[in-house]
């Protein structure tokens, strides 16, 4: 027989790998942990939503209260994502394209909402606009209702989602530098032309990335919105707030039906995020290493 009789060792002797049993153990831990803490919670949302069949599921979503919550959630998301999109772009331009003292501090301030408890993010607006708040009496005299109404909800959501867009853009724009913009300007383009024809096409994937994450958080925000909403049924309940109310009333199918829409939004966001990250990676690193 020409074949050598020596068994090829299965264990790789590479200096950079662990013994087979260690590898197996670590992979096992990873799969078990992520299954228990992430896969099962996701599965149970849909299992509970469809526990009494498709008809009950659809009926729960068609309920007027659910409809009004979905509508409010969409309106709030459009407002706060829109605001953060515009100002995120502006902030990213100022921070990424220029050098100035205090830059690190400014970035930390922009990131601040990530470190603030959602409940506190709501509380600060109650302290500003509430009946006992700084601006409360003035608002009351002028008959302006901010708290327990759409403006308060949109404001708290904008606070919570403030960093997403600029945070996605700043590293990207810093890496791209200013050479292309300078070239456009020296060829006679105006500042706005340069922005829309040079900068924006360069950052479009990063921008989409930031907007997607911003939107997911805006639609799903619970703590901050819960504090400023007032929970007026059919009026100031967003989808996450309605989930809470229905759940506490033991209407589990309805609660999980609405929760399933939010879970679906999260899953779609993650898929899009994964695809975009591959896009961004390719743009940044021409060669795989």
């Amino acid at each position: 027989m020409p074949k050598p009789a020596i068994a090829v060792p299965l264990e790789r002797t590479d200096a950079r790998s662990e013994p087979r049993w260690v590898r197996g153990l670590l992979i096992g831990f990873t799969i078990l942990f992520l299954t228990v803490f992430i896969v099962l919670p996701l599965v149970i949302v849909f299992a509970e939503a469809f526990a009494r069949g498709t008809y009950a599921y659809l009926a729960a979503l068609a309920d007027p209260e659910a409809q009004s919550a979905i509508k409010l959630t969409l309106i709030v998301a459009v407002i706060s994502v829109g605001l953060n999109l515009v100002f995120g772009l502006i902030a990213a331009w100022a921070i990424a394209k220029f050098e100035f003292p205090g830059k690190t501090l400014l970035i930390s301030l922009v990131d601040l909402p990530f470190s603030v408890s959602p409940v506190i993010s709501g509380l600060v607006f109650v302290l500003l606009f509430g009946a006992q708040g700084f601006l409360g009496p003035w608002l009351q005299d002028n008959n302006i209702q901010l708290l327990f109404a759409l403006p308060g909800i949109a404001l708290a959501t904008t606070f919570v989602t403030f960093p997403f867009v600029s945070r996605a853009l700043i590293p990207l724009m810093q890496e791209q530098g200013t050479a292309e913009e300078e070239a456009a300007l020296s060829l006679g383009a105006s500042g706005l032309q340069t922005f829309f024809r040079v900068t924006l096409p360069n950052i479009k994937w990063g921008l989409l990335y930031g907007v997607l994450l911003c939107n997911a958080r805006a639609m799903g925000e619970f703590g901050a919105v819960s504090v400023v909403s007032g929970h007026i049924r059919g009026e100031t309940n967003t989808m996450p707030l309605l989930v809470e109310i229905l759940y506490n009333e033991y209407q589990f199918v309805s609660a999980f039906a609405i929760a399933s829409l939010l879970a679906l939004l999260a899953l779609v966001t993650l898929v899009a995020k994964t695809v975009l990250e591959r896009h961004l990676d390719e743009g940044q690193r021409p060669s795989e290493h």
């Binding site: 799969i31 992520l34 099962l40 919670p41 996701l42 619970f222 703590g223 609660a255 993650l270």
Partner: peptide
Amino acid sequence: GRRIFDAIVDVPFALPTAVAGIALTTL
């Protein structure tokens, strides 16, 4: 399934907290 497990690590970022709350409670 490595890529899928890699992607779902971000679920706690993306899943609204109220949804996570009732799912974990039921589980």
